[in-house]
């Protein structure tokens, strides 16, 4: 069953019903790669709003544009046309320097792979955004984060000495340490086994529930999606569904029908 939703409003109803500024949103976002024969319309006019302090998942089959959407939301890539807003800031209007500052201070990233700088230790990777900004980390907060992700014993290790799951946890710790407004996660459990994956997802959910962060996660895994509070479904560069309170079964069912488009 697909439902069409009007998502062109600037604000949205949060948990408690109060109107609040969206953490991130797009307006008529279009992204085209390549040119002429090899042109690919990755985003085909997307309007979507992501609420604050919510854990939202973006799903869709391969080639649906979900990763592209996230990249543009996070300012990693520019739109061909349309707008992207992070809070009250329109990303397209920022200078390179401002964009860099935004990344340092307001955003956190967890990628599917290659999250860490190979020559730095786990601890140095965690404090990386802060070091780049020449900000001193809040020791209490940092210790808390490290304890939460359970990496106390591994701080001096380099990425090559950590398992995949541990590396992802370091990445999450990094994303938490600088206390950003929005954390973008791109298939964070894609390379992990079930139990490590569950750990990472727990952490992300914790970030939302206990620390009030906003998490936007791209995934193709129904189980991972079930950790979120809302799933936005994409196919061929357009939004085709928006589900609140997802469970693995509901997601799978929905995916079945989306896959047949």
């Amino acid at each position: 069953m697909s439902t069409s939703i009007d998502v062109s409003t600037v604000t949205s109803e949060g948990h408690d019903g109060a109107r609040q500024l969206a953490a991130a949103r797009t307006h008529r976002a279009v992204k085209v790669y390549g040119s002429a024969e090899t042109a690919v319309r990755a985003l085909d006019g997307i309007d979507v709003v992501f609420d604050r302090a919510m854990f939202t998942a973006i799903m869709g089959p391969s080639g649906s544009g979900k990763s592209t959407l996230m990249h543009c939301l996070a300012g990693l890539d520019d739109l061909t046309s349309g707008e992207v807003w992070l809070g009250e800031t329109q990303l397209g209007r920022l200078s390179e320097k401002q964009l860099t500052r935004t990344r340092r201070e307001k955003l956190g990233f967890v990628f599917q792979a290659f999250n860490l700088v190979p020559s730095l230790t786990a601890l140095e990777n965690i404090t990386l955004p802060l070091d780049l900004a020449s900000r001193r980390p809040d020791k209490t907060w940092l210790d808390h984060v490290i304890e939460t992700v359970g990496l106390g014993q591994r701080l001096a290790h380099r990425p090559c000495e950590l398992s995949g799951g541990q590396q992802q946890r370091v990445a999450v710790a990094r994303a938490l340490a600088s206390r950003p407004e929005v954390i973008f996660a791109d298939e964070p459990t894609g390379n992990l086994d079930t139990s490590s994956g569950a750990e990472v997802l727990d952490l992300l959910r914790l970030a939302v529930r206990e620390y009030g962060r906003t998490v936007v996660m791209v995934t193709h895994d129904p189980v991972a999606a079930s950790y979120s509070e809302r799933v936005v479904f994409l196919a061929d560069g357009k939004i085709v569904d928006d589900m609140a309170g997802p469970t693995p079964e509901r997601v799978i069912d929905r995916m079945k029908s989306v896959g047949e488009v």
């Binding site: 996070a74 990693l76 390179e96 320097k97 860099t100 500052r101 990344r103 340092r104 201070e105 955003l107 990233f109 990628f111 290659f114 999250n115 860490l116 700088v117 190979p118 990386l128 955004p129 780049l132 900004a133 990094r174």
Partner: peptide
């Protein structure tokens, strides 16, 4: 390239 892209994503400026 990848590593530097990562640093940029995490907030390193061009000058850095």
């Amino acid at each position: 390239t990848r590593e530097m892209g990562l640093l940029r994503a995490v907030g390193a400026g061009r000058g850095q």
